[in-house]
Nucleic acid binder design. Sequence first.
DNA 1: AGGGTGTGCAACCATTGAGTTGCGCATCCG
DNA 2: CGGATGCGCAACTCAATGGTTGCACACCCT
Lengths: 116, 116
Amino acid sequence: MPQPHPRPGAPGGDAEAGAVFAALADPTRRHLVAALAAGGGATATGLAAELPISRQAVAKHLATLGRAGLVSQRRRGRESLFELDPRPLADAAAWLTTVGAEWDTRLADLQRLLKG
Amino acid sequence: MPQPHPRPGAPGGDAEAGAVFAALADPTRRHLVAALAAGGGATATGLAAELPISRQAVAKHLATLGRAGLVSQRRRGRESLFELDPRPLADAAAWLTTVGAEWDTRLADLQRLLKG
DNA sequence: AGGGTGTGCAACCATTGAGTTGCGCATCCG
DNA sequence: CGGATGCGCAACTCAATGGTTGCACACCCT
């Protein structure tokens, strides 16, 4: 129900979604996420091989993605595998559609107001 | 079809989506987007009134959102109105779901491989 | 006309973040 | 055993960015 003054801020899970947006703000990180989505688990060294940056840079990015809950790490002998966890992506998508829907509702209300 | 070397990057519209993610990475900007979605057009001064930062800071954020295509500006006499444009949100959502779907497909393929 | 109100522009500061290099430790393999 | 390979941690540089203040211009209203 559209009110003139709904709460100023927040659709559900703003913090979670925010972490995801911040994580995906960087093109390198988007590339990593896409690569992990397409290729399954991979190591930092392997991922760095197809990128113009150092392994440590990739490792940092993976750590950032991990902090956002998008990537999980598993040690396998002397190498460590990184794997995508797509669940937070859903939260972010929900935020986007919620805001979009809220806007659409507002427009519809406005038009109804003008017509009526 | 899962190959060892799929294309490195990109579901459709990576650049567009990236701009949106970068724009929404900041909590203040998310708040602004939410406020515009809920309240319709607003001025920088009005938006700054409910925030702990200066009008100019808000203006800068609105400019950033404008560069991402999320906000349009219209001069009305001596005040300038900012309005949400939700279309880029759809692009970003599409990116998220594409990546998620790609991951799901990969998982399904893997399971089929193990079963078959 | 002229004061109040709202914008926009520019300079400046502090913090964050991406990237690098160097080093030490663990693990596999000949 | 001992070299090679891979990882993680720490220190450092450099650019981007969120925030501020100050000022000048445009517009509304009495």
